[in-house]
């Protein structure tokens, strides 16, 4: 685990080489005439842990839900590893979406099933129906892979326990293992630690950072604790009124930037240098 006072890991930028894991251009979404996402641009690189900050209702969760297909955006383009995602649920788009896994604030494990069965369920997308109609039909290789995923998040010793009996932090780590078992290269986490106590939150966020830095995954997490973001994230994107108004290395985020996000206006007359779009009410 990263000590609290350690400097954040160095920012990795892919100037050349393969395309970014996830590129979002001009994402727009409104509900009943209320604009939630307003021309949002976002870029997540492989091996990078990106924190999304912003006040409640700024569109962070909606953005992630659009990226995984739980909401349909009104406009905008999404590219996964350089390949553009269609708007529908055609086979190619579904295959691209499977490279993206989502981790939720409410965790969303099946409480009555064991941790291992929950992790195996991450692989359903690549299993034929006859091997996946019930947990007993899961292939042996899948169970072994799922155990490795549980081991990666430090939960191998609780594999047989029903998910509902684990603590919140443990459940969230099992949910992350499920994302790994999906073989996702991109993990989107929607307030993964908002329901957890500080120690569990620290553990889960540092796990997400490790997965980015050690396994080369692209990780984007909506966080409500700027301190956690500064400690663990490589980059911070700040959302205000459905737009990215801050995009900077985590080490360069200032109090003034945070005031911009949470109060909806710059704290100082001269806005911070890396505020990319200026937004005033």
């Amino acid at each position: 685990m990263t000590p609290a006072d350690a400097p954040p890991p160095p920012l990795r930028t892919a100037v050349t080489g393969p395309p970014a894991a996830l590129v979002v251009r001009g994402l727009t979404k409104s509900f009943d005439g209320r604009t939630v996402l307003d021309d949002l641009d976002l870029r997540v690189e492989s091996g990078q842990f990106l924190a999304l900050l912003g006040a409640n209702g700024c569109g962070k969760s909606t953005a992630l839900r659009c990226l995984v297909g739980l909401e349909t955006p009104d406009a905008g383009a999404i590219a996964v590893h350089g390949r553009t995602l269609g708007s529908g649920h055609d086979a190619e788009s579904n295959r691209l979406r499977q490279q993206t896994a989502m981790v939720f604030q409410q965790i969303h494990l099946v409480r009555r099933r064991s941790a291992l069965d929950n992790v195996c369920a991450g692989a359903l997308g690549r299993l034929p129906l006859r091997r996946s109609l019930a947990p007993i039909l899961f292939p042996r290789e899948l169970r072994e892979e799922a155990m490795a995923c549980l081991d990666r998040v430090g939960m191998a010793d609780r594999a047989a326990e029903p998910a509902g009996r684990l603590s919140g932090g443990q459940q969230q780590r099992v949910a992350i293992a499920r994302a790994l078992c999906q073989r996702a290269r991109i993990i989107l986490a929607d307030e993964p630690v908002s329901a957890l106590d500080p120690a569990a939150a620290e553990q889960v966020v540092s796990l997400l950072a490790d997965l980015a830095h050690e396994e080369g995954l692209a990780v984007a997490a909506v966080l409500h604790q700027p301190a956690l973001a500064r400690r663990h994230a490589d980059r911070v994107v700040g959302l205000l009124h459905g737009r990215a108004v801050i995009d900077a290395p985590a080490s360069e985020i200032t109090e003034a930037d945070l005031d911009t996000l949470y109060a909806g206006r710059p704290a100082s007359p001269a806005p911070a240098s890396h505020v990319v779009h200026q937004e005033h009410r």
Binding site: V68, L70, R97, I107, D117, L124, S132, R178
Partner: peptide, 29 residues
């Protein structure tokens, strides 16, 4: 039922029958 687990498996690419077998039915047994 809570639709969260269903959505979580849909995101992972599970089909309708798989979602019913692994998220919906276990919740209502």
């Amino acid at each position: 039922i809570d639709l969260g687990p269903r959505d979580a498996l849909r995101v992972g690419g599970a089909s309708g029958v798989q979602v019913a077998a692994h998220a919906v039915l276990p919740a209502v047994i």
